[in-house]
């Protein structure tokens, strides 16, 4: 891990879904509407949820997820277990970043703050990084021909400022700081929530040794524990339900896990094919068919 790595701790237990972070991100980074044509015909938003953008993309670097858990049967009047989970999502700036690992041009790079940034003047738009990110964060921007994602407000950090989203968050759900300090803060927060009866709380991104059980919603009673992901996430989360409920992978992997085995097995199969092919030509000679010359 980069010494004094900067990152963000996102405490979903106090996120109110106000989207101030989304707005601040769009504003600071001058990101356009994802689909400007859709704005004109009033179909730009999802329309079926307070989750208005639906996903992260090349122009949505931050996305507030609304997870609506309305009990086992929404048709019945029983809404005793109803709850909304909110989560402000972005690039996690993984310690082992698949996007950075596969980039063939050096456009993706690790900054002095431990975050993953993109040299826009180097990116060729090959899109290899898109398929490498297990979170679906980085996306190809068709209007520029390059890829985009959250860059942890690199320009603000260079001025010793915080990220725009963290600064705008009215409930301190998003906290910016040194990752080591944030990990301690996260662990303390999980322990205080457990003490207050919220046993669902755990950390997604680092294993800080916490464990509990979900106390509401469809997964009530299921055990949860801190999850370390891809060597640790510099932007990590306090969650109140299983990772898949937040559309987060439980155990994502680096795409490179397949590189050596794939190349090795390819080489073995090539050897088998080569021997077989040689035999096809040799056997005819052995079969006693003399050369015509």
């Amino acid at each position: 891990m980069t010494a004094n790595a900067k990152g963000m701790f996102v405490d979903t237990s106090i996120c109110t879904g106000c989207k101030a972070c989304q707005v601040a991100c769009k504003q600071w980074n001058e990101l356009p509407m994802e689909n400007e044509a859709a704005v004109r015909n009033h179909t730009a938003f999802t329309g079926d949820s307070y989750d208005n953008t639906g996903h992260l993309s090349a122009t949505n670097w931050r996305h507030v997820k609304f997870i609506e858990q309305i009990g086992p049967d929404p048709k019945t009047a029983d809404r005793s277990d109803a709850r909304w989970l909110m989560m402000s999502d972005s690039c996690k700036h993984c310690e082992q970043a698949g996007c950075l690992e596969v980039c063939p041009t050096g456009a993706l790079y690790r900054t002095q703050f431990g975050s993953v940034d993109i040299h826009q003047d180097v990116c060729i738009g090959c899109r290899y990084c898109v398929g490498a990110c297990p979170f679906g964060v980085i996306e190809h921007n068709k209007s520029t021909g390059r890829v985009n994602k959250c860059i942890l407000c690199q320009d603000r950090l260079e001025q010793s400022d915080t990220t725009a989203c963290a600064k705008a968050c009215p409930t301190s759900s998003i906290t910016f700081g040194n990752v080591d300090d944030l990990k301690k803060m996260a662990s303390d927060r999980v322990k205080s929530l457990h003490a207050a009866g919220q046993s669902s709380a755990y950390v997604y991104g680092w294993d800080l040794g916490n464990s509990g059980s979900i106390n509401a919603g469809p997964n009530k009673g299921a055990a949860v524990r801190d999850v370390e992901v891809l060597g640790g996430l510099n932007v990590f989360y306090l969650l109140l339900d299983k990772p898949e409920v937040y559309k987060l992978p439980t155990s994502p992997g680096l795409p490179q896990r397949n590189f050596a085995p794939s190349a090795g097995v390819a080489l073995i199969s090539a050897a088998v094919l080569g021997v077989t092919g040689l035999a096809a030509f040799r056997r005819r000679r052995i079969a006693g068919m003399p050369a015509a010359e």
């Binding site: 698949g98 596969v102 290899y128 398929g131 490498a132 990110c133 297990p134 994502p252 992997g253 795409p255 490179q256 397949n258 590189f259 085995p261 794939s262 190349a263 097995v265 390819a266 080489l267 073995i268 199969s269 090539a270 094919l273």
Partner: peptide, 28 residues
Amino acid sequence: SAYSGVLINVTNQGVWGDTFLMGALFVA
């Protein structure tokens, strides 16, 4: 021959990254 198979094998895409046989398959 192996290149494109290994290329798509080294991703997190469904089908592409599920096994490590893509390189061998593309060679064959």
